[in-house]
Design a protein around this nucleic acid. Structure first.
Lengths: 177, 177, 177, 177
DNA sequence: TTTT
DNA sequence: TTTT
């Protein structure tokens, strides 16, 4: 713990609307991808090339709820966090590894598009209502999280038990995003 | 390229002596893993837990040669770079993805262990000799790099052609490190 | 040089249009300030407080020309660089110190306001013309830089000789921005 | 607060033993300087030059106590934090400005020198004893902090009232370190 | 696979 | 004022 640092800072565009779900213990989790671009000059041709790198981001609890309410496809975001590689089982039973940025600081850097304002959506600041989601793919209440495929999601028990993404798990074994 | 940042900074211990090889075009590449530690308090038990995260690092050219000469197993290092996910084929023919830190700044933060000084090893600063390797696992001269399994290594053509690690490639389909 | 890092990353709003000038050796230098905001909760009152921090940024050469063409008052910018404290003489003859971020990466994060497009301004990409400035406060051609008050600007000789800001120097002894 | 980042990461050597004191409200504050080195090639002579940059660091509360117990002159440290410029009055009554790194993460990167181990010193982990200091220059109990020169220290009220460094204050008006 |  |  001393003599140790694990820090990532990326700025880029969100690829798709984040997917938000809940662990069995009721913790919110948000997953999304961010594209960063890099321009460089090809050593053979001397041509300018643009290269896009995709990053998987995972956010927990308050950060996840912020993501659910304010971050959508196409937004320019700042993500600060740490790298974490988790292990999961492919359909063929073999181990796979996915590296993600576990975010501890997420900010939108551009104006929120119209129709995405928290007031219209019902944000998590609303009083008396608890947290309310309204984009379809986020609508997974904790009680629906019945726990099949437990411990197949790659998230360590200590991070928060329960299957994070039952439905994605099966579709994730070949494509990381 | 504008409105974009892709930055990683880690400090940790090197797990094994780096593996250094050459692309067919003669570029040096070094690969090694770095462990970062994180202490946190378990939410259920309230116990202090130590968690180790492993990071794959790849260094090119000058950085690779620095690594070959100065970085060995157990050293405390600073690595600054960018995230890059590359695609490769498992033995079953399926796509796999590995995320690495492509380093642009590597520094040793502790004293070099005895028997690892560049003077004893023949460093790359030596005059008249060019670059000389001497640890067994690094001893892969460019001319031996005959190019089978080309484009199976996951490194983009533009980064520098040629198979980076023919021998590791086959052993890599299940374990990322 | 080994075991050393000096890194700053800020994101914030530019306070005033950058001031661009030239050293006697013809190097472009840009100076501007960036505001970062921080929200925190007051420990006494429990109230939310917003606090603004101002940062001085200096950019050299290509970075300075980029700043001259694309960065103006009010823009949201990313600045990556290193900290540098320089010494200068106040009017009372006493030493003063100013800490700046010497930028090696500057990016605009929002859309450029209309009337600030490089095409209308004549950007530094223009062909056949070399570098051309057009905002009044930037218009200080190298040949006007006649060198009085040399070595009073606080910039080290090695960074590039010559007085960076003869005119500001005298006004700077009490206020850093 | 959104669209804002203020982040500094430095690695370097501590110049002198930190100075630790207490605000009138009993909060610990530690101050020390860190040297970072930078090697570069002089553009005129082509010679390699080493340049040292000094950074002022301030740490509060738990971080300050960690500093008091573990960080001494000559140690290699990692400091992560934010930039803050504070205003203070010189003896001539004029405003001066000092930029510091307000640390939120401090780590020692080398082995602690003998005679500096916390066990010999009595660390702040000791039970039943509260925090105990033992290096002379740190020995400034809160009750001695009688508050003269209040609001002359440049620390904002909200950070924690009271004179941070009564004794240094008078010596600080011309030299920042 | 490192280290404290 | 540090250190290699």
């Amino acid at each position: 713990m001393a003599g140790s640092m694990n820090k990532v800072i990326i700025i880029g565009r969100v690829g798709q609307d984040p997917k938000v779900s809940y662990t069995t213990s009721g913790q919110a989790v948000a997953n999304f991808s961010v594209a960063t671009d890099e321009g460089y000059r090809d050593r053979q041709t001397g041509q300018k090339v643009e290269r896009t790198e995709w990053h998987r981001v995972v956010a927990w609890r308050q950060q996840a709820e912020f993501v659910a309410n304010y971050i959508g496809k196409g937004r320019l975001v700042l993500v600060e966090g740490k790298l974490q590689t988790r292990k999961w089982q492919g359909q063929d039973g073999q181990d796979r590894y996915t590296t993600e940025i576990v975010a501890d600081n997420i900010q939108g850097l551009d104006r929120m598009p119209d129709g995405q304002q928290p007031a219209q959506q019902g944000g998590y600041q609303q009083q008396g209502g608890g947290y309310q989601q309204n984009r379809p793919q986020q609508n997974r209440p904790p009680q629906n999280n019945n726990g099949y495929q437990q411990n197949n999601n790659g998230y360590p028990e200590d991070e928060d038990l329960g299957p994070a993404f039952p439905s994605e798990a099966s579709g994730m074994d070949d494509v990381p995003f």
